[in-house]
Computed example of a mutant assay.
Amino acid sequence: MKIIDKYILKRYLVTFSVMLLMFIPIGITIDVSEKVNKMIEKKIPLKDILVYYGDFTVYFANLLFPIFLFLSIIWFTSKLANNTEIIAILSSGISFGRFLRPFMYGAVIVSIFALIMGFFLVPKASKGFNDFRYQNLKGNSQTRETSDIFRQIKKEGKLEENIYVSNYNYISRTGFNFTFERFNDNILVEKINANRIKYEPKTKKYTLYNYSKRTVGSVDDSITTLDKIELTFDFEPDDLTPVIYVAETMTIGELNKFINKERARGNGNINTYLVVFYKKFSLPISAFILTIIAVAVSSMKRRGGMGINLAIGIVIAFVFIFFDKVFGTLAEKSSIPPFLAVWFPNLVFGILAVYLLRNAKR
């Protein structure tokens, strides 16, 4: 690696790191100012708060990773252009493609770091962040999933089993208005209702309150009612947990196994899990695309100086985030294939990167 490569690579990584170190404390400060009253009111231990903000840092950095990376490259490349360093480099006979090489080295390092974080660190941080937020910082009405939760937990030949809860608190593992239905050849053969269902981790059983069971017979139905009963069901508490929350808190291996299990069950929410799964791979690739766009946009010395380059960079970064969020939501709520929806922003901005790079070379 030549001196120029080391010089640019160092500036790439240092500027990106400084950008993170600048904005993360700002994010923490804003979060503290919003939640400090509830923290004091509920007398949350300092140790728990520090752990929460450790998880918050990882969660926040991963969420805004594309913007941090893009703006940091725009910033230091614009400085190189304003100091006429880029003109000097290209005038020495180095091609623009050769000038871009150390930026690609930096993109490789950053994308590997983002990949490892997305696979292993972010899921753990996401779980800690969401658990703390819902358990300590939100009212009781917000600690439960407000939308109806319906899951198909088994489908083997003509046999089909479904569960339903109107609300579920994943902190206390308690669901409300629980219904279990078993069908045989699309005919209801058994139905269980309970006002409340609670999972017991020690026994790995479910406690049902105000229990009612109806068994459909050929002539008469059999009905059983009890105030309380412990039962074993063929589903996990995660099956009652909000969809996005489950997906975000799993490592890549756990998420892959979970998706295969839900696909076998015929779960209608499978697209939501697939979006999270594919994003773990698409985000690191975006590091290369955003690096090329940032260099192409900011390598030219402009009359307005760095401000113009930063303005262009901010617009492009937020358009990228907009595309990413919109198509991710479309994949979850419509028939658009999740793979296409997740990779579409990279495809569009990849084409833009090639176009800008060709113009920058000229």
Rank of each mutant, 00 (worst) to 15 (best):
L137W: 07
P45I: 01
D227A: 02
Y355I: 14
I30E: 02
T84H: 06
V276Q: 00
G313M: 09
A331V: 12
N195T: 00
P242V: 08
V354W: 11
N256C: 04
I321S: 03
E254Y: 01
V354D: 08
L21W: 07
S126L: 00
S91F: 07
N193K: 00
I292A: 07
R144L: 00
F339W: 14
R151Y: 02
P242L: 01
K280F: 09
L208W: 04
E145P: 02
F120P: 03
M250H: 04
S298C: 02
Q142S: 11
G128R: 07
P201R: 05
I44Y: 12
L90M: 08
T174I: 09
R358F: 11
F99N: 09
N256E: 12
K325A: 09
F60D: 02
L100I: 10
V276C: 01
N260R: 05
S111T: 15
D5P: 12
F96M: 11
L100F: 15
G106N: 01
K202V: 12
F183C: 15
K205N: 05
F318K: 06
R133H: 00
L90C: 04
I314F: 05
Y170N: 13
S17N: 01
S91P: 03
F323K: 04
I336W: 02
Y206K: 03
F23K: 04
S222Q: 13
I285T: 10
D238T: 15
I74H: 02
I40V: 12
P338M: 13
Y355S: 02
D131M: 07
M306A: 10
I89V: 11
V122D: 03
M39D: 08
G305W: 06
I112K: 13
N269I: 05
K124V: 11
L347A: 00
I109A: 14
V108G: 15
I321E: 08
W343G: 14
G93N: 01
L283T: 09
F113S: 12
I153T: 06
E332G: 03
I321F: 08
I197M: 09
A61E: 03
